[in-house]
Computed example of a mutant assay.
Amino acid sequence: MAACSSAASGSGAGTPTATASSGTSAAQLASAAFAAPAASGKQPAGVTYNTGLVPTGAKATIKAKAKDGGMEITLAVSGLRPNRMYGSHVHAKACGAKPADSGPHYQDKKDPVQPSADRAYANKNNEVWLDFMTNAKGEATMTSHVTWAFRKGQANSVVIHANRTSTESGMAGMAGDRLACLTVPFS
Protein backbone atom coordinates (compact mmCIF):
# COMPACT_ATOMS: atom_id res chain seq x y z
CA MET A 1 0.00 0.00 0.00
CA ALA A 2 1.41 3.39 -0.95
CA ALA A 3 2.01 5.96 1.76
CA CYS A 4 -0.72 8.22 0.49
CA SER A 5 -3.45 5.60 0.77
CA SER A 6 -3.58 5.65 4.54
CA ALA A 7 -6.27 7.83 6.08
CA ALA A 8 -4.53 10.78 7.70
CA SER A 9 -4.80 14.50 7.52
CA GLY A 10 -1.89 16.79 8.06
CA SER A 11 -1.05 20.31 8.89
CA GLY A 12 -0.69 21.37 5.28
CA ALA A 13 2.61 23.10 5.95
CA GLY A 14 4.74 22.86 2.87
CA THR A 15 1.78 22.39 0.55
CA PRO A 16 2.42 24.28 -2.69
CA THR A 17 0.44 27.41 -3.31
CA ALA A 18 -1.20 28.35 -6.57
CA THR A 19 1.07 30.31 -8.86
CA ALA A 20 0.50 32.19 -12.06
CA SER A 21 2.15 30.78 -15.16
CA SER A 22 4.51 32.97 -17.12
CA GLY A 23 6.46 32.62 -20.33
CA THR A 24 5.53 29.86 -22.75
CA SER A 25 2.16 28.23 -22.31
CA ALA A 26 1.87 24.84 -20.70
CA ALA A 27 1.15 21.78 -22.82
CA GLN A 28 -2.00 19.84 -21.99
CA LEU A 29 -0.89 16.29 -21.16
CA ALA A 30 -4.25 14.75 -20.24
CA SER A 31 -7.88 15.67 -19.80
CA ALA A 32 -10.81 13.38 -19.01
CA ALA A 33 -14.17 13.03 -17.37
CA PHE A 34 -14.05 10.50 -14.53
CA ALA A 35 -15.82 7.19 -15.09
CA ALA A 36 -16.25 4.00 -13.08
CA PRO A 37 -13.42 1.48 -13.48
CA ALA A 38 -13.84 -1.03 -16.30
CA ALA A 39 -14.59 -4.59 -15.15
CA SER A 40 -11.52 -5.81 -17.03
CA GLY A 41 -9.02 -4.75 -19.67
CA LYS A 42 -8.14 -1.18 -20.53
CA GLN A 43 -9.27 1.44 -18.03
CA PRO A 44 -10.75 4.87 -18.80
CA ALA A 45 -8.21 7.74 -18.72
CA GLY A 46 -10.01 9.12 -15.66
CA VAL A 47 -11.24 6.63 -13.06
CA THR A 48 -13.30 7.42 -9.96
CA TYR A 49 -13.24 5.04 -7.02
CA ASN A 50 -15.53 7.16 -4.80
CA THR A 51 -18.46 8.72 -6.67
CA GLY A 52 -19.60 10.55 -3.53
CA LEU A 53 -16.47 12.72 -3.49
CA VAL A 54 -15.45 12.54 -7.19
CA PRO A 55 -18.69 12.00 -9.12
CA THR A 56 -18.86 10.25 -12.47
CA GLY A 57 -18.57 13.00 -15.07
CA ALA A 58 -16.36 15.27 -12.92
CA LYS A 59 -13.36 16.45 -14.97
CA ALA A 60 -9.63 16.87 -14.55
CA THR A 61 -6.94 18.36 -16.79
CA ILE A 62 -3.16 18.27 -16.35
CA LYS A 63 -0.82 20.73 -18.03
CA ALA A 64 2.96 20.93 -17.71
CA LYS A 65 5.82 23.06 -18.94
CA ALA A 66 9.52 23.42 -18.39
CA LYS A 67 10.26 26.36 -16.10
CA ASP A 68 13.37 27.63 -14.31
CA GLY A 69 15.30 24.39 -14.94
CA GLY A 70 12.44 22.27 -13.62
CA MET A 71 8.77 21.62 -14.27
CA GLU A 72 5.54 23.47 -13.57
CA ILE A 73 2.55 21.14 -13.31
CA THR A 74 -1.04 22.42 -13.20
CA LEU A 75 -4.14 20.45 -12.21
CA ALA A 76 -7.60 21.85 -12.96
CA VAL A 77 -10.73 20.06 -11.73
CA SER A 78 -14.47 20.63 -12.02
CA GLY A 79 -17.59 18.81 -10.87
CA LEU A 80 -16.20 17.81 -7.46
CA ARG A 81 -17.82 18.43 -4.07
CA PRO A 82 -17.96 22.17 -3.39
CA ASN A 83 -15.87 23.87 -0.70
CA ARG A 84 -13.86 20.76 0.09
CA MET A 85 -10.13 20.12 0.57
CA TYR A 86 -8.54 17.32 -1.47
CA GLY A 87 -4.97 16.03 -1.63
CA SER A 88 -3.39 15.18 -4.98
CA HIS A 89 -0.03 13.84 -6.18
CA VAL A 90 1.77 12.50 -9.23
CA HIS A 91 2.03 8.68 -9.00
CA ALA A 92 4.41 6.19 -10.59
CA LYS A 93 1.98 3.92 -12.46
CA ALA A 94 -1.05 4.42 -14.71
CA CYS A 95 -4.57 4.23 -13.27
CA GLY A 96 -6.13 0.81 -12.87
CA ALA A 97 -9.34 -0.85 -11.77
CA LYS A 98 -8.24 -0.67 -8.12
CA PRO A 99 -7.06 2.45 -6.28
CA ALA A 100 -3.65 0.95 -5.41
CA ASP A 101 -2.88 0.18 -9.09
CA SER A 102 -1.33 3.64 -9.58
CA GLY A 103 1.54 2.69 -7.29
CA PRO A 104 3.46 5.02 -4.98
CA HIS A 105 4.09 8.74 -5.36
CA TYR A 106 6.64 9.64 -7.99
CA GLN A 107 9.78 10.80 -6.17
CA ASP A 108 12.76 12.58 -7.72
CA LYS A 109 15.01 10.84 -5.18
CA LYS A 110 13.40 7.49 -4.37
CA ASP A 111 12.97 6.52 -0.75
CA PRO A 112 14.50 3.03 -0.32
CA VAL A 113 11.77 2.26 2.25
CA GLN A 114 8.25 1.90 0.86
CA PRO A 115 5.66 3.01 1.59
CA SER A 116 7.48 6.30 1.97
CA ALA A 117 6.56 8.39 5.01
CA ASP A 118 10.01 9.87 5.70
CA ARG A 119 9.97 13.67 5.42
CA ALA A 120 13.41 13.52 3.77
CA TYR A 121 11.71 11.91 0.72
CA ALA A 122 7.97 12.54 1.12
CA ASN A 123 7.93 16.31 0.73
CA LYS A 124 6.80 18.96 -1.77
CA ASN A 125 10.33 19.38 -3.16
CA ASN A 126 10.87 15.68 -3.94
CA GLU A 127 7.30 14.85 -5.03
CA VAL A 128 4.58 16.76 -6.90
CA TRP A 129 1.90 17.84 -4.42
CA LEU A 130 -1.21 19.38 -5.95
CA ASP A 131 -3.54 19.73 -2.92
CA PHE A 132 -6.54 21.96 -3.62
CA MET A 133 -9.70 23.43 -2.14
CA THR A 134 -12.73 23.48 -4.42
CA ASN A 135 -14.86 26.60 -4.70
CA ALA A 136 -18.65 26.78 -4.36
CA LYS A 137 -18.98 25.31 -7.89
CA GLY A 138 -16.70 22.34 -7.15
CA GLU A 139 -13.85 23.75 -9.25
CA ALA A 140 -10.18 24.32 -8.45
CA THR A 141 -6.83 24.91 -10.12
CA MET A 142 -3.48 24.20 -8.46
CA THR A 143 0.03 24.66 -9.80
CA SER A 144 3.19 23.15 -8.35
CA HIS A 145 6.79 23.89 -9.38
CA VAL A 146 9.63 21.42 -8.93
CA THR A 147 13.30 21.96 -9.76
CA TRP A 148 13.72 18.64 -11.59
CA ALA A 149 12.20 16.74 -14.53
CA PHE A 150 10.44 13.36 -14.54
CA ARG A 151 12.44 10.25 -15.40
CA LYS A 152 11.17 8.70 -18.62
CA GLY A 153 8.31 6.27 -18.04
CA GLN A 154 8.31 6.59 -14.24
CA ALA A 155 5.51 9.16 -13.70
CA ASN A 156 2.18 8.06 -15.17
CA SER A 157 -0.81 9.41 -13.25
CA VAL A 158 -2.28 12.01 -10.91
CA VAL A 159 -4.30 10.69 -7.97
CA ILE A 160 -6.88 12.72 -6.04
CA HIS A 161 -6.99 11.85 -2.33
CA ALA A 162 -9.51 12.35 0.47
CA ASN A 163 -7.36 14.67 2.63
CA ARG A 164 -4.72 17.38 2.54
CA THR A 165 -1.21 15.94 2.38
CA SER A 166 0.38 15.38 5.79
CA THR A 167 3.81 16.74 6.65
CA GLU A 168 3.95 15.17 10.12
CA SER A 169 6.86 12.90 11.03
CA GLY A 170 6.00 9.28 10.18
CA MET A 171 2.94 10.42 8.20
CA ALA A 172 4.64 12.59 5.58
CA GLY A 173 3.05 12.36 2.16
CA MET A 174 -0.09 10.60 3.36
CA ALA A 175 -3.38 12.05 2.17
CA GLY A 176 -6.06 9.48 2.87
CA ASP A 177 -7.98 7.24 0.50
CA ARG A 178 -7.43 7.36 -3.24
CA LEU A 179 -10.66 8.81 -4.63
CA ALA A 180 -9.85 9.12 -8.35
CA CYS A 181 -7.01 8.77 -10.82
CA LEU A 182 -6.12 10.40 -14.15
CA THR A 183 -3.62 8.59 -16.38
CA VAL A 184 -1.04 11.14 -17.58
CA PRO A 185 1.92 10.54 -19.94
CA PHE A 186 4.46 12.75 -18.14
CA SER A 187 7.39 11.58 -20.25
Rank of each mutant, 00 (worst) to 15 (best):
residue 98 K to Y: 10
residue 101 D to Y: 04
residue 140 A to C: 07
residue 86 Y to D: 01
residue 179 L to I: 03
residue 148 W to R: 03
residue 121 Y to E: 06
residue 129 W to I: 09
residue 92 A to T: 15
residue 180 A to K: 12
residue 91 H to V: 01
residue 58 A to N: 05
residue 162 A to R: 11
residue 81 R to E: 14
residue 73 I to P: 00
residue 125 N to C: 02
residue 1 M to C: 13
residue 13 A to M: 11
residue 99 P to L: 12
residue 119 R to G: 01
residue 89 H to W: 01
residue 12 G to I: 00
residue 20 A to H: 12
residue 33 A to N: 15
residue 151 R to S: 11
residue 166 S to P: 00
residue 69 G to R: 03
residue 168 E to N: 03
residue 129 W to F: 12
residue 135 N to K: 03
residue 186 F to V: 04
residue 140 A to Y: 09
residue 164 R to F: 00
residue 121 Y to W: 12
residue 121 Y to H: 15
residue 106 Y to L: 05
residue 145 H to A: 13
residue 178 R to I: 10
residue 64 A to R: 14
residue 136 A to P: 01
residue 127 E to I: 14
residue 118 D to H: 08
residue 180 A to T: 11
residue 179 L to E: 02
residue 185 P to G: 07
residue 136 A to Q: 15
residue 115 P to F: 10
residue 20 A to K: 11
residue 32 A to Q: 04
residue 11 S to P: 08
residue 106 Y to R: 02
residue 3 A to L: 12
residue 15 T to R: 00
residue 29 L to T: 08
residue 134 T to I: 12
residue 117 A to I: 06
residue 71 M to C: 01
residue 139 E to A: 09
residue 52 G to Y: 02
residue 66 A to V: 08
residue 83 N to V: 00
residue 7 A to P: 09
residue 114 Q to L: 11
residue 55 P to D: 14
residue 78 S to Y: 04
residue 164 R to K: 13
residue 87 G to V: 00
residue 159 V to S: 11
residue 58 A to Y: 06
residue 154 Q to C: 03
residue 14 G to L: 04
residue 98 K to T: 09
residue 125 N to W: 15
residue 63 K to Y: 13
residue 174 M to I: 02
residue 81 R to N: 04
residue 8 A to F: 14
residue 11 S to C: 11
residue 152 K to E: 15
residue 29 L to I: 05
residue 112 P to V: 12
residue 101 D to E: 15
residue 80 L to Y: 02
residue 82 P to Y: 04
residue 92 A to Q: 13
residue 103 G to I: 08
residue 20 A to L: 13
residue 100 A to H: 10
residue 57 G to V: 14
residue 178 R to N: 09
residue 138 G to E: 05
